[in-house]
């Protein structure tokens, strides 16, 4: 679904990504792990088109999207779920969700999808007329995820869905990512919460200083001492059972 080949990118003269190769298969859940300042967000921006590539190319669904504008990539079905703080605080919950469906013209389907999002996150229905700036951290995370679903994506890229959330809320968010994946949406999760992300995903990449250090099947990475060395581990204990129900 998504193929990243030897991507170099950065800001101005500052190169941050130095040759990234990644592959996200159709229908799979892949995670990209790394600490602060390792190039995770830069990679997401490069794939979304917010910053230009210096070298390399990005293929989505067999199409070379390297030189496409960000909004054109969204129209192809490659949708980024922004960090929670990037909801529009001065818009209502429902306006935020409708903004997610901006690219779509199928009105009846949009209404049906809005209903689906409200079923998945009942708290959003309760708060739909509220300004999203008044929501709690977990609620805003649900909002940006719902906004992503409203775009009817082929693939969702989630930018640190567990950031700054309580462990219990993180669990709920990850269970919902799993539910979204089951509807046939391909998923790339960018995370710092190594353990949770590796339980959720089938395959993982670990980025450091703008290059992929380690990659492999999630169940192998989870017990790999080299991975443990790169991080101090996730904040939640063994939660695999909770995720699968």
């Amino acid at each position: 679904m998504l193929q990243i080949n030897d991507v170099h990118a950065g800001y101005g003269n500052l190169k941050i990504l130095r040759g990234i190769d990644m592959h996200v298969p159709t229908g799979g859940i892949v995670t990209l792990l790394g600490g602060n300042g390792t190039g995770k967000s830069t990679l997401l921006k490069a794939v979304s088109g917010l910053i230009p590539l210096m070298e390399g190319k990005v293929l989505f669904d067999g199409v070379n999207i390297s030189n496409m504008k960000p909004h054109e990539r969204v129209r192809l079905g490659l949708v980024q779920v922004t960090q929670a703080k990037e909801a529009y605080p001065a818009m209502t919950v429902e306006e935020n969700l409708m903004l997610g469906a901006y690219i779509r013209r199928d009105r009846t389907d949009i209404v049906a999808d809005l209903e689906r999002v409200y079923e998945m996150f009942p708290v959003l229905r309760e708060r739909r007329k509220q300004m999203s700036g008044t929501l709690s951290g977990g609620e805003v995370q649900m909002l940006v995820m719902g906004r992503g679903i409203m775009a009817k994506p082929k693939m969702l890229m989630l930018d640190e869905p567990s950031a700054a959330l309580a462990p219990k809320v993180v669990l709920e968010i990850f269970a919902n990512i799993n539910r979204i994946a089951k509807t046939g949406v391909t998923i790339l999760v960018v995370e710092q919460n190594v353990r949770m992300a590796l339980i959720l995903a089938q395959y993982g990449y670990i980025i450091r200083d703008g290059v992929i250090m380690i990659e492999g099947k999630a169940e192998q990475l989870i017990s790999d001492p080299a991975v443990k060395e790169s991080f101090l581990g996730g904040s939640v204990a063994d939660t695999s059972k909770a995720l699968t129900n």
């Binding site: 088109g49 949708v79 529009y88 001065a90 901006y102 690219i103």
Partner: peptide, 17 residues
Amino acid sequence: LAVRAVAHNKDIAYLMG
């Protein structure tokens, strides 16, 4: 709605398509 989105943050507006 799109105009308001662009007014508040252009990068996020791009990501909304």
